[in-house]
Computed example of a mutant assay.
Amino acid sequence: MIQPAATSDFYGFKDLLTDAERAALDRLRSLLAEHVGPIVDDYWERGEFPEQIVAPLIDADLMNPAEVLAAGQKPSALYSGFRNFELGRMDASVATYYNAQSGLFRTTVNLGGSAEQVAVLEPRITSFACKGVFALTEPEHGSDIAGGLATSAKQEQRDGVAGWVINGQKRWIGGAGQADVLAVFARDAADSQIKCFLVPTDAPGMEIRKIPGKTSLRIMQNADIELGNVWVPASARLAKINSFADVAACLRNMRSDVAWIATGVCFGAYESARDYVASRSQFGKPLGSFQLIQEKLAHMLSNATASLALVVRLTQQQEAGIYRDENSAMAKMFTARMLRETAALAREVCGGNGILLENNVARHHADAEAIYSYEGTHEINSLIIGRAITGVSAFR
């Protein structure tokens, strides 16, 4: 049996974190190993979400970890990135579930809400007292959502109270059935601009249906949503989202979260394959001693390390106030592509056993396909980068 390397972080990117942040991440890794690792394959095969992991994740207070606060620090953006990394390293669905709250919903409220809305909602979001998800994609509109979004919102008073009536459909909304609130994006009938509304999931006229038959992200419960004359008060509208440009500002932040998840899953696939070949023997020798296997391991780790370098630098830029569509698009495009290739190589070096859940490669291999497409497909992100390179938009 071969003894694998003690760390996969050959360039020491985690050294950029504070001691307190690393301690919080070590605690998260232990939590995932205890509460998620032993059951994740069973729930993935069943296509169900393990509700018993929610309480430990909430109690861990990962958005404001005790170690960091006790050190008199504020959690850095780099810490938040590595938090997504650790979640993804264990399982893409668990990472996507947590990021739906900590990334998508929180970002939408913090960027789109008024100061008053943020002050009320931020502590409720970080504590999970208010569970929310992001509802943008529609059955007929994914990549073309900017111009094609069809869900409508019309101002209407009810019992003397100003509000909005929302009609339309949303699709692929992860965690909707477990949420209290949906951040629903709809086109204002008056000015045709995109607005965002916090809609309770138990609102009359709201119907949420689980999407069955998925071959990727099977633990994550994605939903079809029907909104039929759903009324919300005027206070439910996020005050700073008044056009798709404001939505794009949210997406610019969210793509970096997904790139971190993709990078974490990439390392998870590599490490699972590395551990397998270290313990498996063929022709009387450990698989890890063969030249062809070592070349593939080197390829996988290089992919993962390049992805980590990219997301670390992107996050450093964003924490310094530098937000560029092309930078976040490049990170999402590259990390998802590297994940796809790495997961395939991981499956390959495990041979036929690579399709068995018990070897921890098959989940990553399947989940890579969903990550490759969500939060901006490879093609759409390529065009965002191409627009920055040439100064010409190829979208129209």
Rank of each mutant, 00 (worst) to 15 (best):
G168S: 08
L136E: 00
F134G: 00
A146G: 06
H141V: 08
S152M: 13
G142H: 04
P139I: 04
S143I: 02
G163C: 12
T151I: 09
G163E: 07
K154S: 15
T137V: 10
F134T: 07
D144G: 08
S143Q: 09
F134M: 06
D159W: 03
L136M: 02
W164C: 06
G160H: 03
I145D: 05
I145H: 05
G132C: 11
E140A: 14
R158F: 00
I166D: 05
I166Y: 02
S143P: 01
I145S: 08
H141E: 11
F134Y: 14
E156C: 08
G147Y: 03
D144A: 10
D144C: 05
E156L: 12
A162F: 10
G132R: 03
W164F: 15
N167A: 07
L136Q: 00
G132V: 08
E138N: 08
V133H: 07
K154T: 15
A135K: 03
A146K: 14
A135I: 04
D144I: 05
R158Y: 01
G132W: 11
Q155M: 09
Q155I: 06
E156P: 03
S152I: 10
K131I: 14
A162L: 13
Q157D: 08
E156D: 05
A135C: 06
A153V: 10
A150T: 09
V133I: 15
K154V: 15
Q169P: 05
G160K: 07
V165K: 07
R158W: 00
G132N: 11
T137C: 11
E140M: 13
K131G: 05
V161Y: 02
G148K: 05
I145Q: 11
C130K: 12
R158C: 06
K131P: 02
Q155T: 13
A162Y: 10
Q155C: 08
A162V: 10
Q155P: 07
G142A: 13
I145T: 13
G142I: 00
N167D: 14
V133N: 12
N167I: 10
G142F: 01
D144P: 01
